[in-house]
Design a protein around this nucleic acid. Structure first.
Length: 102
DNA sequence: CCGATGACGAGAC
DNA sequence: GGTCTCGCCATCG
């Protein structure tokens, strides 16, 4: 159903992120054919079900930080998942540039 | 219908 | 380089 709208395109774009890679919201929107709709991407992800084949944890903001506030399960989980893929974090919580090599 | 909010980005100062 | 403001789309009150 084309009614799936860009939301499906965004999910697809995220699922296209290779292992050990991180991408920003703007980049996802751009890949989905919606340049400038970074917020729309975040909105879709927020509606994501608990079990999904979409590597949402590889999606971060352009600042290189996890968008979730600290002390939250989602923030901790995303951090653990990224570390499990070989991605490292700075003392400030920022993702190291070595993860952007893709 | 209008205003406010949200896992953001980019430009302006 | 840091801070502020506007813009984008969709949903909620």
């Amino acid at each position: 159903m084309d009614n799936n709208e860009p939301s499906q395109a965004i999910l697809t774009a995220i699922s296209q992120i290779p292992f050990g890679c991180v991408t920003s919201y703007g980049e996802i929107a751009k890949r989905a054919g919606l340049p400038g709709h970074a917020r729309y991407v975040g909105y879709i992800l927020r509606n994501l079900p608990e079990q999904t084949n979409v590597p949402w944890h590889r999606v971060i903001n352009s600042q290189g930080f996890i968008s979730f506030p600290p002390n939250t399960e989602q923030h901790a989980e995303q951090r653990l998942r990224l570390q499990a893929e070989g991605i490292s974090f700075s003392p400030t919580g920022k993702i190291k540039l070595s993860a952007y090599q893709c």
